[in-house]
Nucleic acid binder design. Structure first.
Lengths: 190, 190, 190, 190
DNA sequence: AGCTAAGCGAGACGGTACGTCAGGTCTTGAC
DNA sequence: GTCAAGACCTGACGTACCGTCTCGCTTAGCT
């Protein structure tokens, strides 16, 4: 099929993107290099992706498909720790670093990507929280949106500013610190 | 004096940087434009700043001198709210946006800038916390480093990913949420 | 066709070179100006010509195609006068002046150009001399290589050092003076 | 004295020029390099020489003072051979090469230099010819100006175009070929 | 001997052109 | 008919020198 062929090519190009970003960071990432690696003409790339940034977005999606998977059977805390660990690894990986550059560079594109990809994942996490509430793990009247920012924010902050990937211990401490009040209040109010 | 003369020119160039970044974002920010705005040869810029990133760093410093001023007479909460508000404004300003791009792009340069400029400011905040401990505002045994990440992190996260400047209400809520446990414990332990 | 298309653009660039050199001398001759005149990017020029000198060489070839045409029906003297007259005009033209600068500046490139372009023309002149010998115009045992230097040399010398284009009278006298011995001996030996 | 001091400095600069041109050709010849070599500020150079070309002219004069010395006791032929040999060496030396570049580049400056320096030397040679005429070495009615061009021209021609320094044999043959008619005619008319 | 003014080194400065590079568009020939 | 290959225009990069200019520091010459 046409579609299949196209898909095959797209896949090939995205693999080249992942390979390129794994070898060097975003500053040496060029379309021409990707085309050469993929054995493809530049025009073929531009046929499907309007900008270099789109390539990075898509590569990041490919690279982080599993990061946002939740296990509704497990506790909220366990899920958050798992997710943040995977997120930290993903963001610290060259592909994630590239994503951060692109997000910082192209505000509108960043906004779109956030709306279309990251926000829905966050919605999933909200659903998880809802479950936790229903299971009595955390109290219901708590600013969970804000709480999520205090979880996701520090991960990004550490990577960009401290230039350091938060390790498991950091993330464990972070999660415990942040969800404690939501739990403690619950306990207190009992 | 030599110093004054040099400073005058440098000042002029940095003003051009601020002007340029105010009119358009970092992607249209070019050395040649800065040189033209400042009425200066390109070489004069390259004589003092090795990279475009250095220009941005310095412009950011200039632009945020007052952001990190603390008032040790006031409460910790008040200081944090004030500082985060000013930080949010500064980061959301084109100069701050440019800084974020540069930090994401140039890891090493970012590390240096963080060590030399941002970390010392954070040390000041730590001192403020020490005061607050001594004044009994907050308990002593609390992971304040981590707490600071949960304050600074969300501000950056909101700006980069939500593409939105946290407003005063957000920051008030954030600070209250984050320092509450440190205070509550203190109260509880009395 | 590819060739034609490329040729068209190359032609366009070479025309720009000729135009530029006609308006100002080699010292104001810049690649950027050529690119602008030809409505072409700089890189397009650099794709085909490694150095500015190559542009000048090629422009000179274009400009002097007819200079070295010989008429084997005519006498040696007549041919030499004709050729030297055309050569004088060509060298005195801005394009020729530029060639002289480039030849003086880039010895190796000059050597190549001489080998590949000027020497073959000189070989033609040698053939003409051979004809003249066979026709009895000049004697066979004469150092014609050296003689050619005493013809071409003064033309260049006048242009570079006297900054003056040799006129027809000068060239007539020169040729007569130089070939007389070759002829006279022939006569004497009869 | 002021003059002496200035002279000392000028000498020092000219030595630096000769040294620089001996090590690399004119294309790497920069004022800044000369200033550094001479341990002198750029402004000191520009105080005495308006342009880079003037430096080359003066260095060439310094370098060729002895080239144009004639020995009126010796025969015309001997003098010409000697002079042309020395000229060939001088022109082939980097300083001479630089002179050729500058002459080709700056027509007006070249004209001035020719008028003020080279032409007077040629006048000396004319005087020598006058002696030769009076001594009966050569006939009086001969186009000696043109003849001189056929001597000097080929030397320059060989150096610039053949990129080859004429050796003694070449020069001997050249001189003999060129002055033979002037001598032979003299003989014939006796 | 001390003082002042010229001369100087050092090198910053505004420019101009360089040659390179990559982005994103457009063309072409082969498959 | 599609697509790799790559030519093309654009525009910024960072570098190298130019010729001008300003700065203080010598240092000579006069008091």
């Amino acid at each position: 099929m046409n579609v299949e062929k196209g898909s095959k090519r797209k896949q090939c190009i995205l693999n080249a993107v992942l390979a390129a970003l794994s070898e060097a960071d975003y500053s040496q990432f060029t379309i021409e290099d990707i085309a050469a690696r993929a054995g493809v003409g530049k025009s073929t790339i531009y046929r499907w992706w309007k900008h270099k940034s789109d390539l990075v977005f898509e590569a990041f999606k490919l690279h982080t498909e599993s990061v946002f998977e939740l296990d509704f059977e497990q506790s909220l805390e366990h899920n958050l720790v798992q997710q943040l660990c995977k997120l930290a690894v993903a963001l610290n990986h060259p592909v994630g670093r590239a994503l951060l550059v692109v997000m910082a560079e192209h505000r509108e594109a960043a906004g779109l990507f956030f709306q279309e990809y990251l926000l829905p994942r966050r919605v999933q996490t909200r659903k998880l929280i809802q479950c936790a509430i229903e299971r009595g793990e955390v109290r219901a009247d708590y600013p969970f949106e804000l709480m999520l920012d205090t979880l996701y924010g520090p991960i990004h902050y550490q990577i960009i500013f401290f230039n350091r990937m938060p390790d498991d211990a950091y993330i464990h401490n972070l999660v415990r610190l942040v969800i404690a009040p939501a739990q403690r209040h619950a306990l207190l109010e009992e």
